[in-house]
């Protein structure tokens, strides 16, 4: 199963968003409307599934200080790329 499929399944199961509405281009916040509490549950499930620690604090800081956009981290295809990078770095 691809990283995208795993993450999409996690999002669908955690937030009750229909699985078919989640695409590689979906913005998890702007398009899927995932709120901060559901996002915590999703990050927890992703951390466990991939054995990683998504650096949410660093990402949030980068977005807040303008060195990154929310799209860089929270559009599905980009989020999955980051997850793959974190998993590869840990391996």
């Amino acid at each position: 199963m691809s990283t995208f499929d795993k993450v999409a399944d996690i999002i669908s199961e955690t937030s009750e968003i229909p699985r078919e509405e989640i695409t590689t281009e979906s913005h998890t916040i702007d398009d899927l409307g995932i709120d901060s509490l559901d996002f915590l549950d999703i990050v927890f499930a992703i951390d466990k599934e991939f054995g990683i620690k998504i650096p949410m604090e660093a990402w949030t800081e980068e977005v807040n200080n303008g060195t990154a956009s929310t799209e860089d981290y929270f559009v599905m295809k980009n989020l999955c790329t980051r997850i793959d990078e974190l998993a590869a770095a840990k391996a």
């Binding site: 915590l40 990050v43 927890f44 951390d47 466990k48 620690k53 949410m56």
Partner: peptide
């Protein structure tokens, strides 16, 4: 159970 970035369970 887990100490994440900005959260814990």
């Amino acid at each position: 159970d887990h100490e994440g970035s900005g959260y814990a369970v």
